[in-house]
């Protein structure tokens, strides 16, 4: 029970962080039809900016400043990068973001070096918030969840209750009509891109010190974020939310299961030839396979339901 509750909380905090990352990606995709390969790089930039800012003014101002700087970079990327290559079609846009991811990584190498930087949790949050039976639960994890939920609510309110939210939603499906009504659709695109980048940056600010801030962090979360977006359905926020929580739970809970195919064979009474070359495969436990499980889920989803959990597009 203790284990279940602690792991549930861990999976929730991880899932919410994933959602913060994937919400921006899926918004940008549904609006511009561009899969932004540099999205995870904005996450990394958020963490590094927060580290740099926090060395001067502390963590709390960094929490606001870093995402804003990342948003600015996002806006510039859209205005002067994506919009310029837009006329050459989606392939050019895809390649642009792909290249951008590499450039950002190299720039990070040049400025901050290749080793992890000492970006730490602020001392005021470095205590245990509560105990579940005998396990302490760190306050910073609670803080991460609060930020994620606050962001989730804010995003929902902006998209459904404000004027700009309505225009964004309208531009998603009928950009020409919105343009004809006199709205500046390119600016809306820029805002969405900047907003998506800011969300990724914010995730970086709170994820960077909870885990590690290093140049490899973009690559390590980048692929998972794509899994979330594909699994949840391209362009669907609700889908991304559910997918984030599912993938978060799969990754955290799978660590706990020491069952392998061999033990399954044992229970259903199949004799296995222990000399066989397949033995190595039979012996792999779920815990060992934990890192590949999200990808297996994605492949399974693509086979069964190619549009994803809540996606609307086919193929």
């Amino acid at each position: 029970m203790e284990f279940f509750l602690v792991t549930l909380l861990n999976s929730l905090s991880y899932g919410l962080l994933l959602f913060m990352l994937s919400s921006g990606l899926t918004l940008i995709f549904s609006m511009m039809g561009v899969l932004n390969f540099a999205h995870a790089s904005f996450y990394m930039l958020g963490a590094y900016f927060a580290y740099q800012t926090s060395t001067y003014v502390g963590f709390w101002p960094a929490l606001v400043i870093a995402p804003l700087v990342v948003a600015g970079l996002g806006a510039i990327t859209e205005r002067y990068g994506l919009r310029t290559v837009h006329k050459y079609g989606h392939v050019a846009e895809l390649l642009f973001t792909f290249g951008l991811a590499y450039i950002i990584e190299e720039v990070v190498h040049l400025i901050w070096g290749r080793a992890p930087v000492p970006y730490r949790i602020p001392e005021i949050l470095d205590f245990s918030a509560f105990s579940i039976f005998s396990t302490q639960y760190p306050a910073y994890r609670v803080f991460m969840m609060l930020i994620s939920v606050a962001m989730l609510v804010a995003l929902y309110l902006v998209l459904t209750r404000t004027r700009i939210g309505m225009i964004i939603q309208a531009s998603l499906s009928h950009p020409d009509m919105v343009q004809a009504l006199g709205h500046n659709v390119p600016t809306v695109f820029m805002l969405v891109f900047a907003g998506g980048a800011a969300l990724a940056g914010l995730a970086g600010v709170i994820g960077g010190n909870a885990f590690v801030t290093e140049p490899g962090m973009a690559v390590s979360v980048g692929t998972i974020v794509f899994v979330v977006v594909v699994f949840g359905g391209m362009g669907s926020l609700a889908g991304a939310f559910i997918a984030s929580l599912i993938i978060g739970a799969v990754q955290t809970f799978s660590v706990a299961f020491d069952y392998s195919l061999l033990s399954l064979f044992g229970t259903i009474g199949i004799k296995v030839n222990t000399e066989s070359g397949w033995m190595e495969l039979w012996k792999v436990t779920i815990a060992q396979a934990a890192p590949v499980l999200p990808y297996l889920l994605m492949v399974a989803m693509l086979i069964v339901r190619p549009k994803g959990l809540m996606g609307t597009r086919e193929g």
Binding site: F3, V6, Y14, F211, S220, F253, P291
Partner: peptide, 19 residues
Amino acid sequence: LHPLGKVKDFAPYVAKIKA
């Protein structure tokens, strides 16, 4: 056995050790 250099969050493993 966990993947080399890939795990950024050991909390699930620690929960398992604790259990």
